[in-house]
Design a protein around this nucleic acid. Sequence first.
DNA 1: ACAGTGACTACAT
DNA 2: AATGTAGCCACTG
Length: 107
Amino acid sequence: MQDFYSQVYEIVSLIPYGRVTTYGAIAKALGAAKSSRLVGVAMNHSHDVIPAVPAHRVVNRNGLLTGKHHFIGEHSMQELLEAEGHVITDNKILKFETAFWDPSIEL
DNA sequence: ACAGTGACTACAT
DNA sequence: AATGTAGCCACTG
């Protein structure tokens, strides 16, 4: 057991290629369903973490790319997702429910 | 030890 | 449908 953040990073790094999950789902998988915001805060620090976590695979519960502004890399969050086969329209992932990967179920 | 912070959510207007 | 409000809680200075 380590920091809450570390657990978040662990879950995020387990997200399979081409799949996405939500802040709330991660929080719930950690047994802290009400700490979805903390997951967001953790992702905010993810750029300091080694190895880097695929934070672009984490979106809000509507499949909306809420955290795209925080991406500092050369490629936008949307580009990265599209590169994994997702279709983004108006900052939202189409067929999000299909691409959704629930860590508390699949894990 | 305390107050501020936030990449969320659900509910209310 | 689109905003606004209010809980939420681990981390940081």
